[in-house]
Design a binder for these strands. Structure first.
Lengths: 148, 148
DNA sequence: TATTGTTATACTCTATAACTATA
DNA sequence: TATAGTTATAGAGTATAACAATA
C-alpha cells in the first residue's frame, strides 16, 4: 500500500488543516463553526436566495445536517427562510441584514489571511493548485464507488 | 471576497470529498470510520509501535478524540497498548494480529480505488499535485494565526 | 408516486478543561 | 513543575431512516 503520508486523501486533509488552522480563530471569535461559515459564504456568493438543496450541494452538507444548521442560523437572525411561491415544498434561504453585516465584518479578515497564504505559497502556484484541484474533482466525479 | 467555490479551503474540501466518496463504502463494509482507518494506517506504516502523541500528530486527531478511538479499536482487538519501560506515562500503540489482518484485507481494495483515481486523473498530474500539496503545507506551517 | 425538507435516533468527533500518574 | 495520556462535559456534525407536505 502507498505510503500513508503520501496518500492523496491524507495530503488533502493536511493541506486543508494547514489552511483552516489560520482561519479558525477568526471564525471562533464570531461563534461560527466551519460549516456555519460555509453556509453564510454560499448565501453571500449568490445574488438570489437559494433553496435548501442548492445550499447543501454548495456546502457539501447533508440535508439533515444543514436543516439543523439553518435552524441555528435563523435563531441568531443571520438567515431567513421564506416559502417559494410556485412550489410550497421549497424554502428560499437568504442572509438577513444581520447576516450580511456579519459576512461583511468577517470578510476582510478572511481575505487578509487568504492573502498571507497566497504570499507565502505564491500567486501562480495557488492558481495552478486550484486548477489541479478542480481537475481532480472532475476526474473523481466521473468515477463510481465499487461494491465490496 | 474571493468567489466561494474558488476558495482554497473549499477546493481542498471538494477534492477530498470527491476522493473519499469512493473509499467510504469500503471502510463502511469493515465498520471503520475515516478516523479509525487513519489510525490503523498510521500504525501499519510504522515499523515500530508509536506513542499516543505520535499517532495524534500523524492522523490529525486530538489526543482526547484519539484516546476514545484507541479504546474502540482495542475493544475490537485491532490495536493494543503496552506501557513503555523507560517512561511509564507513555503507551506504545501497535496493531494486533487481527489489526494487521484487517489492514491487509482492506489494503488491496484501497489500492484499487487509488489506482482508479490515478488512471482518471493522470499519474504525472497526481505526483505533481502531491508535490504542490506538500509545498502548501510547508508554506502554511510557517504562518501563525493572527489575533482578531 | 416522487420530491423537498424536517425530525428522530444513535453514533462519532471536536474542543476545552480537569484529572491521574509519572518524570 | 512539566508532561503523557485519560476522562468529563457540552456541543456539533454524520448517517440512515421515517415522516409530512406538496407536486
Amino acid at each position: 500500500m502507498r505510503d500513508f503520508t503520501q496518500s492523496l486523501p491524507m495530503a488533502l486533509l493536511q493541506a486543508r488543516e494547514g489552511a483552516m488552522r489560520l482561519f479558525r480563530p477568526l471564525l471562533a471569535k464570531h461563534d461560527l463553526t466551519e460549516q456555519q461559515w460555509r453556509v453564510l459564504r454560499a448565501l453571500s456568493a449568490s445574488d438570489d436566495p437559494l433553496d435548501v438543496g442548492s445550499v447543501a450541494d454548495a456546502t457539501f452538507l447533508l440535508a439533515s445536517s444543514l436543516s439543523r444548521i439553518l435552524s441555528n442560523l435563523a435563531g441568531r437572525d443571520l438567515i431567513n427562510r421564506t416559502p417559494v411561491q410556485n412550489d410550497q415544498r421549497r424554502a428560499a434561504i437568504a442572509l438577513t441584514g444581520r447576516g450580511q453585516n456579519l459576512v461583511a465584518q468577517v470578510a476582510p479578515h478572511s481575505e487578509a489571511i487568504y492573502n498571507e497564504i497566497e504570499t507565502a505559497f505564491g500567486t501562480a502556484e495557488l492558481r495552478e493548485l486550484l486548477t489541479q484541484l478542480a481537475s481532480l474533482r472532475d476526474s473523481t466525479t466521473r468515477l463510481e464507488p465499487n461494491g465490496y
